[in-house]
């Protein structure tokens, strides 16, 4: 029987996991009153669903619908003036959701806050470009890599992959080596789809090495052309050396030189 391979997550998996092993969790600390993070949590009280400190940074879970308002509060009331990073994590296989995170920096306090929210597959998120220009590229990258639509983004377009690409590479359903579309992309683009059969998988990638083709490995003196029958053994093909004869040009030109002299 063929081994079952889950289709919703085709990334590499551990080949063996102890069935009684339970992964521990990075400790989460509660936010203390009176600290800077305590003040942030107070200011964000209207939005925060859950907040804790993980590895020295405050993490606030919010509702995805309120992301713009929450981040505006964070920027204007708490002094988080830089959005360092914004991206998503694919949890479609487990929960049918994406987890989005926004990473912020307060330059004066040297503190960092991460805003986390979840959206369902197919839902869009509000852009925070009016607040942070750095989110412009970050949200475009998220759209490119996960296919998450961002409402009111000034220029939502693929950024890293080509504009006519199909599929979103960082989804867990997208294989590491690319899908069918990816493997034919250059052939389709340059020659057209109808050339797929003519070119064939063996020629679409010039760097491709057919690991089962044992015939055409370079064995000096025993080269075989493709498809040739070698059941009787390979024909010996003598190495052809260059037959250039050395010409003593100096001697020839010596005459001319003498004439000139």
């Amino acid at each position: 029987m063929r081994k079952y391979v889950p289709k919703d997550n085709v990334q590499a998996k551990s080949y063996y996991t102890d069935r009684y092993w339970v992964a521990p969790r990075v400790p989460r600390e509660a936010v203390e009153e009176g600290t800077h993070f305590g003040a942030v949590v107070d200011a964000m009280k209207a939005f925060a669903k859950e907040s804790y400190i993980e590895v020295g940074q405050l993490v606030i879970h919010i509702d995805a619908k309120e992301n713009f308002e929450a981040i505006k509060t964070l920027k204007e009331q708490c002094g988080y003036t830089q959005c360092s990073e914004q991206s998503a994590v694919d949890y479609l296989a487990q929960d049918g959701e994406f987890e989005l995170f926004y990473q912020f920096l307060n330059v004066n306090e040297a503190k960092r806050v991460r805003i986390v929210c979840r959206i369902k597959q197919g839902e869009a998120i509000e852009s925070i470009v009016p607040l942070f220009n750095s989110a412009n590229f970050a949200e475009r990258e998220m759209f490119d890599m996960f296919g998450i639509k961002v409402n009111n983004h000034p220029f939502l377009k693929r950024i890293i992959m080509p504009d006519d690409w199909e599929g979103h590479p960082l989804l867990k359903t997208y294989p590491l080596h690319g899908d069918e579309f990816a493997s034919w992309y250059e052939v389709d683009k340059i020659f057209g789809k109808e050339y797929r059969d003519i070119i064939g998988p063996e020629n679409r990638d010039p760097a491709r090495i057919d690991r089962y083709d044992t015939k055409r490995f370079s064995r000096v003196g025993y080269e075989v052309s493709f498809g040739e029958d070698i059941t009787e053994g390979e024909k010996e093909q003598p190495i052809e050396y260059s037959e250039t004869i050395l010409v003593d040009y100096n001697k020839k030109s010596g005459k001319q030189l003498n004439e000139r002299r």
Binding site: Q11, A12, K13, S14, W21, A23, P24, R25, V26, R28, E54, V55, Q57, V59, S84, E85, S87, V89, F101, Q103, L105, R112, R114
Partner: peptide, 29 residues
């Protein structure tokens, strides 16, 4: 197999803030 959790660590690379955000689900990947 690191513990489950997420971490964002910024460092000052010659070009600026180079940070790695890692989300671990307790797997070796």
């Amino acid at each position: 197999r690191p513990p489950k959790g997420e971490v964002y660590v910024p460092t000052e690379s010659p070009k600026g803030e180079l940070g790695f955000y890692i989300k671990s689900e307790g797997e070796p990947y």
